[in-house]
Structure formats: structure tokens, C-alpha cells
Amino acid sequence: MVYFRFVNTIVHRQSFWIGFLLAVLELTTAQGAELEAQRDGVIEAASYVTPDFSGDQNTNPAWQTEIEKLGSLYVRLRISADGVTPVEAVLRIRDRSGRLVREYTASDLLSRGSFWSAVVPGDYALVSLHASGSLQGFRLAIDQIAYQAHGGAPLSTVGIDEKEPIANYADDAVIARIERPVARLLFVEGGIPRTCTGFLIDTGELMTNNHCVNSQAACESALAIFGYQHDRGGLLHFGEQFECAKFQEERSSVELDYAALQLRGNPATIWGTLSLSGTDPAPTSGIFIVQHPAGEPKKISKKGCLVSAVPVDGRASETDFAHSCDTVGGSSGSPMFNASGDVIGLHHYGFGEGGDWSENRAIRMKRIVDELSHR
């Protein structure tokens, strides 16, 4: 099966249009499926470097630069620092409105080496270095910029696209509870920004697909963003970001296409966790999926959302069930729920044109629960 995703044109400050095409290739066979996480933008080389500092800093900020990618939905920066640790210094990143997105101390910067920053919503980032005392011997550089444009072809939509904003179900007690632990997952893999969905299953543990994040390197670039969604009035809330600290290889599986990531901090105290079911859904039963399709604000697919067949083959024999819920690239790693709000499946495959599978597929949570209990 081949998926192609077309990403909208981005306008740059130089007043000309630069069009780019992102193609996402998902080759899938009924056995040993090879899947690739949804591409989510591009990475460009950059050369923002602090000057050679000498003596005490008499002005603040000591250094500042503006980064803009007009038309982009977010910006991320690849940052590195080296040299002598200043007594007191902090790097601040703000969005176009002046809101502080993330703050890094100089000692934190030096301990991280090269790393991807927090996500700055929108198409502009203001980066400033503040210090009291000398910055002599300290150097900071931004050598890459990742940015996103809107994308998403409805290749795994069943008939009419019936995905809805999650706010449509704000009065549903079950859905209002279980949607909170679902996060938008952004990461870099193979030099490409990518997006999937994930959800909290324990204090700081996030579950997603193994074909999304399957290494410590990908984890170190990953951010889980909770609460990225529209409210009833249509206002978009960007949510709260948590960095990935560890890819838990012992709690991951290629065959069952799941991965567990340990996040920094404790997002569960605010966003809660989900219950994993050890029982398969019945064929033709009604289910629903909460997702971030194409990295978009949180949506739900509930209308016309049914189990088509269970069990069916996935990456191994009888690992999956087939379903008719509308999804799109980026929905990989989304939890699938029964009417009680228990997670009965982990979505990992959306059908397109041709290929060996003609339905959307989710891993049976029963298989994952059984494997985790033995591990």
C-alpha cells in the first residue's frame, strides 16, 4: 500500500511562495507489516550563533534573534551550547504573542548537548539569552529549524469523513474523562519531523505505536502535548508539553506494534490515565477512537464506528481487529474505546488505495495486556 500526503505551501518573508511536497510511504503486508510514522513538515539548516562574549553583560537580553516561517503551524529549534557555565544565564523562547513557551538555564543547555526545543505554536519564535554577570566563554547555536504545514489526505476515511472536534462531546461524562490522557506526539526520525498520537497508561508512561517511536534517539526528540484541542467556542488551546525521557524497550513490541515511553514530569496528575482492557470487542459492536489526525487538534470518530472483524492478522497472526472508524495519517497510536471508556485497541493502520488490507486496523489490547503481564 502506498500513501501520499500533500502538504500546503508555506509563505516565507522574502515574499515568494515555496511549495513543497511531502510523500509518506506506508508499505504494508498482512504479515510483518512495515509502517512509517506520518511526516509532519521539513527541517532546514540554520546558522544562528551567539557572539564572542567578554566581560559582564550590561544589557539584557545579551543576545536575541527572531525566527519566522510564515504559514507554519509550529516551529522547533535544534539548539546546542558549549563552553564555560555562566553564573546566571537563561535562554527564553517566546511565541508571536510574547507568551513564554519554554525557559532553559545555561547549565541545562550545557548538560543536554544538541537537542530539539519545545514546540513553539505558530510561525514565529523569539529567542533571547539573558544573563547577570559574565558570559565569557559561553556559546550557543541554533543549527536546524523544523516547521509544519497543514496536511492530511483522507485515505483511511470510510465513506463520508465523520471525525468531529472532541468539544462536541464535552457533555458526555465518559468521553470527557477519557479524552484528557490522549496526546499529540511530535518527534524527529530519519531527519524528518513526524507526528503520531499517544496516551497515558501510568504516572508518566505513554503508549503509542512502535512504528512511531522505537529508539532512544527518537524518544529524545519527542514531545507529548496534552490538551491540544478546540473548546466549544472554537478557541484553540495549545496544551501542555512533556518531553520523552526514555524509550522502554522492555515494554515495547514490533510484532504487536506498541511502545511505552517514559515522560519527564508527572502529566498524569493533571491529565489522568486510561484503563487497558483484557477483553476483545465483539464483532459489529460500537466503539470510538480519540486521535490527533495529521497532527491536528484532538478529534473523535464515533459515528459509524464499528468493529468489522476480530481477530484478524496484523504484523503476526490474529494480533488485530478490523474497524470502520475514520482515521488519517497521524492517528497511529490512538486508543480505541468500548462504550465504558476502556481501551480495547491500539490503532496502527489505515487503509488506502490497493494493498493487502481493505479496512482500518487496531492491535487487540488483550494481546498487549497479556504480553505486558508476562513481562
Rank of each mutant, 00 (worst) to 15 (best):
A218T: 15
N209Q: 11
E205F: 13
G204N: 15
L200H: 10
H237S: 14
S215A: 12
F199G: 05
T203N: 06
Y228A: 04
H211Q: 12
H230R: 14
N209L: 09
C219Y: 02
F226L: 10
G204L: 00
L223I: 15
D202M: 00
S215M: 05
R232D: 10
R232Y: 05
Q216A: 14
S221D: 08
G198N: 09
G227C: 04
L223Q: 12
E220K: 03
E220W: 04
L236T: 13
N214Q: 10
Q229C: 03
E205Q: 13
A224C: 11
G204S: 15
T203W: 00
C212P: 11
L206I: 14
Q216T: 10
L206R: 15
V213S: 04
F226C: 09
M207K: 02
G227D: 01
S221A: 08
L223P: 06
N209Y: 10
L236Y: 11
G204E: 09
G227R: 02
C219H: 03
D202P: 00
G204F: 00
G233F: 03
I201H: 02
C219D: 06
C219S: 07
G239R: 03
H211G: 12
Y228L: 06
I225H: 00
L223V: 15
N214C: 08
V213A: 03
G233H: 01
H211A: 11
G227P: 04
G198Y: 09
H237W: 11
C212A: 14
L223H: 13
I201N: 00
L200F: 08
H230Y: 15
G239H: 03
G204I: 00
N210E: 15
G234F: 00
E220T: 05
F199E: 04
M207T: 01
E205P: 00
C219L: 04
